[in-house]
Nucleic acid binder design. Structure first.
Lengths: 208, 208
DNA sequence: GTCTATAGTTCGATAGAC
DNA sequence: GTCTATCGAACTATAGAC
């Protein structure tokens, strides 16, 4: 009788795969991609090095899936923060603030996701996710322009520029382990100015 | 008598090295890093593939040097444009405008320099050059804040954010070969808003 | 799953400079 | 005659097609 993969076995395999990804996530948080050698990931997951290759055909595939999973959580958190606000400007601010403060809370991880030199396949994923963040911002900005809350501008261009701005502004502090205590409010102010929000519009949720 | 490399031979070797880099630059302009296979570079330079390895120990070293040389020219052009203006705001605008319009004139090259997924060693160089551009902007911004021409802000953070903003805003149009005819003025407007330049300050070179 | 195409790299042979 | 710069085929690995 041929070997058959029972549900119980399958579950154990899946759990092991999850465990490997989880171990990789911790290493990414602690030491970035530099710490994610297959050996280190396997050791942290409590499996043999070769076992990793039973779940992932190559290190490239592993790090790409790792990147997608971790950044996916950031996208979810940011999208959630956006949804939690009503005003158009408030949404953009919430995105900036959430993104930046989460990054500064996990500096090594954020640096790995944003800027650490790594396999070109991960680079390609970075481009994809930057577009995702851009699209998250472009909607509210377009509405704001339509309603006259914001001055005339190309919403997609402004959205892309803001994504690049926030990401790049964080790279410096993240790389140097700098304290940068004011970075988040500074970035929010930058964002408000860049959008062209009138100075008077003080309070969050103040607009349409 | 031992073989000695005469000046004539050395000159020929140097010329050949330059020729290889020149060929690589053309290929980068035409088809990005994707077009820069060693075989293609060698063919374009009119040398054998193996000869490339007499000048560069590996493809990585070749593309890193290529990147440095090409981006170095962009830095020079942008720095020159900055120097050509007197006003602090005018300098920042000149940097943005020069950078963006040059990029849009050589879209494939600009995409390769800014965003194309490539060897991590080139990624590391990208980080270095982004800092260079940031420092180019941070000076005038700091002066502008000091003089009260610009509202209070962290000059280095604003500078980094602008570098990221311009780069990221260009990636979309560059990747899609989009016309994006208004991209440059739009980016200039974004920059003016982000700096916090009062609406009234119309003309270039109008400030201190 | 094998086969093909193409990538980066290596190396023995050749031709020309010393 | 010796040494070396150059060549281009061969080697190894990998990705995609059938």
């Amino acid at each position: 009788m041929p070997y058959r993969r029972t549900p119980a076995i399958q579950a154990r395999i899946d759990a092991q795969r999850t465990g490997v990804l989880h171990a990789a996530t911790e290493l990414l948080r602690e030491r970035g991609y530099a710490g994610c050698s297959i050996t280190a990931v396997a050791a942290k997951a409590g499996v043999a090095t070769g076992t990793v290759y039973r779940h992932f055909p190559s290190k490239t595939e592993l790090v790409v899936e790792l990147f997608r999973a971790v950044v996916g959580r950031e996208v979810a958190a940011v999208a959630e923060a956006s949804r939690a606000h009503d005003g158009l400007v408030a949404r953009v601010i919430a995105v900036t603030e959430t993104f930046a403060s989460r990054a500064l809370k996990s500096p090594r991880l954020a640096y790995a996701l944003l800027a650490e030199p790594v396999d070109p396949a991960v680079e390609a994923e970075r481009l994809v996710f930057r577009r995702t963040f851009r699209d998250l911002l472009a909607g509210p900005i377009a509405e704001g322009v339509g309603l006259g809350v914001l001055p005339p501008q190309d919403p997609r261009l402004t959205a892309a520029a803001l994504v690049g701005a926030v990401a790049e502004a964080l790279v410096g502090p993240l790389a140097e382990g700098d304290a940068a205590p004011d970075a988040v409010p500074e970035l929010v102010n930058f964002t408000l100015r860049a959008l062209g929000v009138p100075e008077s519009s003080g309070g969050i949720d103040a607009d349409a």
